[in-house]
Design a protein around this nucleic acid. Sequence first.
DNA 1: AGGCAGAATGTAAGCGGTTACATTTCTCCG
DNA 2: CGGAGAAATGTAACCGCTTACATTCTGCCT
Lengths: 348, 348
Amino acid sequence: MSQTAQQPPIRKGPPTLYDVSRLSGASIATVSRVFSGKAKVGESTRRRVMEAAEQLAFEPSHIARALAGRKTQTLGAIFPEIASGFYADVLAGIDEVAAENGFDVLASFVGKRRSRPEMVKRLLRQGRVDALIVLNLVSSMDLKADDVKQLPIILIDREISGAELPVVGLDNVGGAEAMIEHLFEQGHRRIALLTGPSGNYDSEQRLLGCRQAIARLGLSLDERLIWTGDFNVESGTSAIRDFLDSKQALPDVIFCFNDAMAIGVLNELKRSGLNVPADVALAGYDNVEAAGHLSLTSVASPMRLMGQVAARWAIDLINKNERPSGHNLQVRLVVRNSSAGKNPATTQ
Amino acid sequence: MSQTAQQPPIRKGPPTLYDVSRLSGASIATVSRVFSGKAKVGESTRRRVMEAAEQLAFEPSHIARALAGRKTQTLGAIFPEIASGFYADVLAGIDEVAAENGFDVLASFVGKRRSRPEMVKRLLRQGRVDALIVLNLVSSMDLKADDVKQLPIILIDREISGAELPVVGLDNVGGAEAMIEHLFEQGHRRIALLTGPSGNYDSEQRLLGCRQAIARLGLSLDERLIWTGDFNVESGTSAIRDFLDSKQALPDVIFCFNDAMAIGVLNELKRSGLNVPADVALAGYDNVEAAGHLSLTSVASPMRLMGQVAARWAIDLINKNERPSGHNLQVRLVVRNSSAGKNPATTQ
DNA sequence: AGGCAGAATGTAAGCGGTTACATTTCTCCG
DNA sequence: CGGAGAAATGTAACCGCTTACATTCTGCCT
C-alpha cells in the first residue's frame, strides 16, 4: 500500500492547518476561515474541512493564532501575596466570565522576588495577555505611565492616588453605615469601634461610614471608644484586654473593622467571663467563614462578583474599547446573634 | 533633521528583535542569542545589543518565542468548581515554584460548561501549556489515552483507577492514624467516627487509617458508632441529633472526617447543653480556619506544599523528562482543646 | 607569511496561523 | 447566451522569534 495523496505522511507534532488543508483539498486560507469563522465559506467546503479536521483531531494552535492575529485571548490577574479564600473567589469570578468569552486566565501572585510593578511590566511588554487585572494596588505610582497606555488595566479593590485606571471597589462606606444603622436599630447607643491600622484605606473608609451614620442618627461618637487595631486576631485580643484593664464601663457594642479582630475580642471576652451579646454585643466585617460558625454579625463582600465585573470590563475594553468608569460594589450586611440588642422587643 | 540609520522610523507596536538589530548593528540572530543566552556572543557585541534593547525598552515577545521555540513556559492548572481557600493555597504553591523557574501559570476552574476532560483536551491540543496539573481528578478515565501521551500531566489529590499518572496526594491514612493515637493518649476509648459519604476516596482512606490504628492499639471499633455524613455542616448537626435522640450513651470522643461536620456537631452539642470536651471530646479533619477559632483539634494538610511539589514535578518532567513516581505528603496533627481527655493528668 | 581550528556572526528557513489582495466560480438578468 | 458583480477560494506576505548551516574573523602554530 503506497502512500497516496489521501494518506498524509507521518508527521511529528500535532496536526496543523496544512495537514487539514491537504486532507480536505481546500487551501490553507479556507481552512483558517472555517476555524476563525470570520469569513464566509461555502457549505460543502466547510463540511469537507470539518471532516478532515475531525479525522486528524486538529485544533488550531493558540500560540500561532496569538502571533498572527496579535490577540492572546488571555487575561492576566495579579494577586497579593497572601492567598486567602477571599482571593480564590475573585479568581473564580474572573475565570468564569473569561471562560464564557473564550478567554483564559494567567494568574500570578506577588512575591518576594516579584513586585507588582515588575509583574505588570513583564506581562505587558511580553505580550502575554490582552488585559491585566490587578488586585490591591496601593498606589498607581507603581505603574509606569507607559505601561498604562499599552494595554487595558483594571484594578480591583483599592486604588488611592490619581485614579487614572478603572477600579472595581467595594462600598466600604456604605457597609459601615449599614452596620451602624443596624446596631442602632438593635438599641445600641454606646458604640465602640476597633479600626484597622491608621492610614489603611479600608479602615479609613469604614470609619468615615461610621461617622456619617452616627451623625445622621443624631448620636455622638465617643472618641475614647475608638481603638486602633491591626486587622489580626491578636490585636483584637489585646485591644479588649487593655480596655477591660482600664475598668471603664463596657460599651453597648463593639464594631470591629474586620472579623479577625472581632474573633480576638470574642475570645478574650469569653475568657473574662463576659457573654456576647448579653454583656456586650459584637460585630465584625468581611464575613469570613468563621463568622458564620461563631454567630458573628458581619458585612459580606461580593468577591466573586468583583472578579466577574473586572473580567467583564477587561473584555469590553479589549473588544469594544469601552472605558468603564469604575464602580464600588454594594456589600451585604449579615445579621447574626452577636449583635442582638438587650431589649427583647427590639431583638427579633 | 532627516531620518538617519540610527533613527528608527516610527513603528506601530512594541519594539522587536529587528528594531534592536538595526539600532545595535548586530544581526537578528545575534540579538536573539543575547536574549536567549543559549549561545556565545562577543562581549562587546553583547553590550551594544543590550544598550540598544534598553533604549528601546525591548522585551522579547513571549508568543513569538513560544511559537518558534515550541515551548510556552506555562503550566496549566485545573481546579475543581468550588473555590475555597484550600485551593488558593495550592495555586500559590504552584505559582511560587513556577515563578522561580520562569514559568507562568494558567489557572482555570471546572464549571458547568467546562468539564475536566474538555479542559484538559483543549489546553493540550491548543498547545497553550507545557504541562498540566489537575486537581481532584476522580477517574483517570476522564482523560483520553492520547491526551496523556501528549504532555506531562501531574495530578493533585485523588486519582483512583489505574494510576498511570504521577499523583501528589495526602497521607490520609497516616493522618487518621495519628489522630486516633492522639485520642487514645488523651484517654479516650469509646471512639465514634463520622465519615464522609461512602465511596468517597478521602473518607475511605481515613476510615482505613482509623481501623489500622485502633487495631494496633488493641481497641475495638464499635460499628454502631460509625456514622455516615456528607462532609457538610448540616450532616454533622443531623448525625449527632439522631444519635442523641437514640438515647445511647455518649462516646468519649467523636472524630469527624472533616471540620465542617465537626462544626455542625459542635453547634448541636452546645444547643443540647453538652460541653466539649467536658462531656464529649471532638476532633475534625482539614484544619480549616474556623477550627482554630473554635479550638477544634484537627489535621492540617500542606496545601501550599502540594502545589509546590506538583509544579516541581511538572517542570522536571518538562526539562529533564524525569518521571516522578507519585507521593503522599505527610499531614500534621493540630491539637487543640476540643480533644482534651477527662483525666487531668493526661491533659496537658 | 600561510594555514587552520574554533569562535563570532550572519543568512534564511521555518513555527502555524491571519489576512490583504488576486483569481476563480457562481448568480442573475438583459 | 454574454457579462457584471458578488461570493468563494487561493496565493503569498507577514507576525517576531529560533536555529541549522554558511560565512567571516580570530589567534596561533609552523
